[in-house]
Design a protein around this nucleic acid. Structure first.
Lengths: 368, 368
DNA sequence: TTGTAAGCGTTATCAT
DNA sequence: ATGATAACGCTTACAA
């Protein structure tokens, strides 16, 4: 590590003087004074109001540019009754599916001349609390929740007096809240997980290990585990508890590293299996590596299946069989629904999208 | 797509009544009235000020909980002179390196009892404009820029009167701005790229293709290309323009898909090569897939090297040789430096971190 | 077309 | 310990 330059802070440069006191920011008032006009005229210039003399406006804009004045958004939001904006609250920014959804939502929001507030919510934060604050602060017209568990009290969520939609990619839809209070866009995790497991069974697999990431009831992880059990029992295969492997709790649940560690432990446990169903592609990648390192060939010795349909599964070697969630369609529907509700064309809606089973190179007929 | 439930919006539920008019939000005034106290007392209760009767406070807090009152942040920010908060402006949220950096920055910020504003900047947005707004709105004490190009005017950036740091992971440090105005934390892209290329040359490779993602001068992509040229000329290998492959411009530059397409085109071009240096791991993954599909073995027939040190390279099959950027250390140094500047212990600093060449399975001696 | 003034919902400064 | 009241920086009637 090379320190190229160091110099002591001299003060005055950073909006605080030598004593650490805050220097006054430049305001609309200063601009008005400097232009010799009233503040409302400046305001009109900024917000390009129709009734203002173009010359006056130009003059003001020049001064604004020269001084580098930027209006204070807090003051604006405070005063403005209507901001034409919506927010996306993202819990777990790591999820690669979210990026795609956000991109779509951004585009559609812009088309509607709305502005989008994107807010990242920490794992330990309560997303409804954050939403509550944001609604007041930014005068939001609607909210989309991406990620999180949603076991919130109906009482609390009722305070959120704008339309909100839960997008169930990595989000368990609240079971404890009246369904007329909210909207949701989801994939039937249990059903799709069932489909994948059934596919594996159809390939002749009997000992299918499953890598599961959550134990909370109604969580995505549990739902996918249920689907796995459904397929097993339908095929008359006894459920073997030892083939259910929970990922490590002390590192990021949905990560390649966790898939690797968990699969490695599975191998070392000595339990017999001919297929591994990782309930997320990102886990599948790590799992593949662990299996490969253990000297197993995929899919000749062991089949590996994922879930989600993220890019990496397609480019991995071998390409990983997966359940693709139609994220773009879901995002489009989500944003359309939100604007429908805002416009009063609908009240709420619960939509379930079908996922797509994509068979790639990582799954094959059971050995022996 | 199954529509489970549809009902017409009845109004009244969402902070707007039937006519679409906004319903008044509950304010501190309402709480004061309902509690039979003055508003300043409520304010004291909310901000747990010392001089308030515990009983009064409890009573007020009960009412607040019951009514679901949430203070308006815009009003708070407007009035508050000092917020003890800093911001991270992220351009290109897709970069997996950023997540790690942000995590570290978040932790350290919390330790200092500061709050962190995380702001996602669109590709087409000017990050300095966004920063300027945010500084006023949130009374920020400092800013960290992650991603972006930074060819900003000194004039404009001088208006940013809080300390700011450019973290050069996916960011080209501004060359056109006086170095005393800002701080930077970086890896020497040219040098590290040189090192990787030299490693490949040491393995006997002479025809090394390079996958490059940007053509802007001083961009990360260009710097890495320069390093490649440096190594070539040092080894007395003639530079072959046809081995330099720019990624597709109309899709996301740094993506597996783009690595795949670009490598595929390289193969189809018929140009001879025994190694591919992808200037980002994410490109390397796509490139590997394309090479594999073309029937080449890695590293027996062709070596592949990446850059960045992201997780996927470690778990890919084969594991990808890379230049690891010490993101966590860099993040730690970044946040420490920012707080040093805020506290007046330093003025500015330019720090260059060494990267680490990690040789994995994807590179080997040149064929033939 | 322009200026004046009344808020927006807080916090901070006074008195009390 | 508590309550008025004046800002904070802006938008928006309303008046000119």
């Amino acid at each position: 590590m090379f320190h190229v330059t160091i110099r002591k802070y001299q003060g005055g440069k950073y909006g605080r003087n030598m004593e650490g006191c805050i220097m006054p920011e430049i305001t609309i008032k200063d601009i008005a004074k400097q232009c010799g006009v009233g503040i409302s005229t400046v305001s009109r210039a900024i917000n390009n109001h129709p009734d203002i003399n173009p010359e006056t406006k130009n003059m003001i804009m020049d001064v604004i540019k020269a001084t580098g004045f930027v209006p204070n958004n807090s003051a604006r939001n405070l005063k403005r009754i209507d901001a034409k904006s919506i927010a996306v609250l993202v819990k777990g920014i790591t999820n690669p599916l979210f990026s795609d959804m956000i991109k779509v939502i951004e585009e559609e929001t812009q088309k509607k001349k709305y502005s989008l507030v994107l807010k990242h919510v920490e794992y330990y934060e309560d997303e409804v609390d954050v939403a509550l604050e944001l609604v007041k602060e930014k005068r939001l017209r609607g909210i989309i929740f991406l990620g999180g568990y949603f076991l919130h009290s109906q009482e609390k969520i009722e305070n959120l007096r704008v339309p909100y939609i839960f997008s169930t990619i990595g989000t368990a839809v609240p079971e404890n809240i009246s369904r007329v209070l909210y909207s949701s866009i989801a994939v039937d995790d249990r059903k799709e997980s069932y489909a994948m497991t059934a596919h594996l069974i159809g390939l002749g697999h009997r000992n299918i290990a499953i890598l599961s990431a959550e134990s909370e009831i109604n969580s995505i992880g549990q739902l996918r585990l249920e689907g796995y059990k459904d397929a097993l029992s339908e095929a008359g295969i006894a459920f073997n508890e030892r083939l259910v492997r929970q990922v490590e709790d002390d590192i990021e649940h949905y990560s390649m590293e966790n898939g690797y560690i968990t699969a490695k432990k599975l191998v070392e446990s000595g339990e017999k299996f001919t297929a591994v169903f990782a309930t997320a592609d990102i886990l599948a990648v790590g799992a593949c590596r662990a299996l490969l390192e253990a000297g197993m060939r995929i899919p000749e010795d062991v089949s590996v299946a994922g879930y989600d349909g993220i890019d990496v599964g397609k480019y991995y070697n071998p390409a990983i069989t997966t359940v693709r969630q139609p994220v773009k369609d879901m995002a489009k529907t989500t944003i359309k629904l939100l604007f429908d509700i805002i416009a009063g064309r609908k009240s709420y809606e619960h939509i379930v999208f079908p996922a797509e089973l994509i068979v790639r190179e990582s799954t094959g007929t059971a050995k022996g």
